[in-house]
Structure formats: structure tokens, C-alpha cells
Design a binder for these strands. Structure first.
Lengths: 155, 155
DNA sequence: CCCATTAAGTCTTGAAATAAGACTGAGTCA
DNA sequence: TGACTCAGTCTTATTTCAAGACTTAATGGG
């Protein structure tokens, strides 16, 4: 299977990765969550090939994760802002960051903390069950075919 | 910057991606969560190059996400099992799946559901604050430098 | 006017990674 | 014996990436 055909898969995870699973894409979003918006700023902070950055930004805009907004007309200049859909990924990224920090703690602790402005505390993202509200024990997850399943493979 | 040097970054997200950010890696883990354990099964279900699969499995074992366990001696045969560290990624993957399903619902609904065996219901993974217990509004997350920060870049 | 600078890309080139599938080696099964 | 299983390894052609030079349009200073 080719990576480029991932979006055609039935599997939800495959379709998610078709959007944000390319190299650098999640790091571009990390910068976006840190309020970076302009091409050269993304490029300078990530140090990635400009060609790749161009491609990733275009892809994220096409998938509605970022919006390209003109901030001046002459010469035309644009910035990239998160959409609501893009913002929805932030808690997940925090969860991923918490996962690494839990397993590969540096000597001094995590380099970045996240404050929950609602309650004012630095927090970890705790995954809970939408039905019973309890924190999810990873061993208590049982995947099974849903209504949109075609045959046997899915996710 | 080269992708291979990602693990040396201070940024937690970069270090997470150095472990699970390669092409196909998360799909390998999806299969592992669906109880797939053997090389040929992974290969047949994913349809990826065997060379790439070999590399990804080795990488995941090296990083303690999977364990390679002999299940017979002659000829030697192995299977790959999730470690606790690997299991810790399952709620995050469910969250990612929920994210796509929310934004790109198929006509029939999601192809895969997840049951929370503790309460018996199909659930979505809701990210909540470890401090106040509330569901996290993505706009209420304020990243800031933590104790392990070196200069300005992080995550 | 002339030159430097900024910003958002595009282009080029050589180096890596991936896709597809053939091949290998040890052992089992009939 | 010959077909088959399983877990890889190898080969080749194609794609993608890394690094940085180049482009275009405008602004600011001397």
C-alpha cells in the first residue's frame, strides 16, 4: 500500500493520518498552538525544508485544519491560523506530550507545561469515558465493528 | 533539520514523534490494539513493504512500546506484544479516531467503535483536566515554559 | 536613485526512505 | 519428496526529503 492512498481507507485512524500523519505536520501544528502563524517563522523554528513546509501548510489548509488569511495586500502576505477543527487536536497533542514526559522524563522535568486557564492550574490531559466519566484504563478498551464497517478491517 | 535527529530535541512532542511519528508506525499500533501480534499478520493487514515493517517493529521494541516474545523455538518464531507503555497510547489513538469521526463522518457512521468494558458502553475519549476534572476546551490551554526548558523553544 | 532587507514562496540537487515483490532458511505436514 | 508456513532479508525503481540558492514585490534609508 502507498502512503498517499491512506485517505481512501475506511479506517478512521488511516484517514486521520492522511491529514496529520506526514512528517513534520504535527510539529507545524505544535508551533501553531504556540501562536506561530507565518511561513518564515514556522521555517525558522522548525528548520525544515521550505518546500516541505509549503506542502504541509497547503495540505493542512485543504483539510480545514488551518486557514490561510491575508494580513496585507501589497505585496500579498498571508498567515496561517488554526480553525476549530485544528484546535480540536490540541488536547490530543497535550496527551501525547504527557505520554512522553511520563516515560522519558528529563532530569529537570518537562520543558513545556500546559495551563488550564479555566481552573488556573498546570494540568495533564486525562482521557475519560464519555459515558461514565471515569479515567480510561487502557486495558478496558474493547474495539469492535461499528455501523460504518464494511468487512473486517477498520479502526 | 533531519527527521532522524528528532529524538535529540528538547521538545516532548518531537521526542514522541521520534518514537511513533514515522510513517505506518501508528497503524502498526492500531493492529496491535486489535490483538495482531505476528509479522505476517501485520504485513497482510497493512499491505506495507516487509522491509519497512521489520524496521518499524524493531524501532518500537527498542523504544519499549512493544515486546518481542518467542512463541516457539524450532524454528524460532516471535510475536510482538504491547507493553504498558504501548498500551498507554491506546486512549490517545481513540481520541484521534474520535476527532476524525467527528469531522469526516461516513454516511453510515464510524467503522469502529470502542467499548469501555468498565461501564459497558461504547464511548468517546474525552480529554479532561487532571486538576479540576473538567473537559478541556481547546481554547483554554495555555502552554508555557516548564522546569526542563532550556531557552525558548519547547513543547 | 541605489542598495539592503523582509516575506513567502519556488527550484535544484544529492541523499534517504519507501513500494513491491522475489528470495532465503528452518521446520512442518501429507 | 514436495508443498507450505513464517519471519525475515534483498533488490530495484520510484518518491520524498534536506539544504540552500534563487525569485518577486514592496519598503526604508542615504
Amino acid at each position: 500500500m502507498r502512503w498517499r492512498d491512506l485517505g481512501d481507507e475506511e479506517c478512521s485512524l488511516a484517514r486521520a493520518l492522511a491529514v496529520v500523519g506526514d512528517r513534520w505536520t504535527l510539529l507545524v501544528l505544535r508551533e501553531a498552538f504556540l501562536r506561530v502563524r507565518r511561513f518564515d517563522d514556522f521555517q525558522a523554528r522548525l528548520g525544515i525544508a521550505r518546500r516541505v513546509l509549503t506542502e504541509r501548510l497547503k495540505h493542512l489548509v485543504e483539510h480545514g485544519v488551518l486557514r490561510k488569511v491575508a494580513y496585507q495586500d501589497a505585496p500579498p502576505r498571508f498567515e496561517y491560523r488554526l480553525t476549530d477543527k485544528g484546535l480540536g487536536l490540541h488536547p490530543l497533542l497535550v496527551g501525547l506530550v504527557n505520554w512522553v514526559d511520563a516515560h522519558y522524563a528529563g532530569k529537570n522535568g518537562p520543558p513545556l507545561l500546559h495551563r488550564h486557564v479555566t481552573c488556573g492550574h498546570d494540568f495533564r490531559s486525562v482521557m475519560t469515558c464519555s459515558e461514565c466519566g471515569e479515567a480510561i484504563d487502557p486495558r478496558a478498551i474493547a474495539p469492535h465493528a461499528g455501523p460504518g464497517a464494511r468487512k473486517k478491517k477498520a479502526s
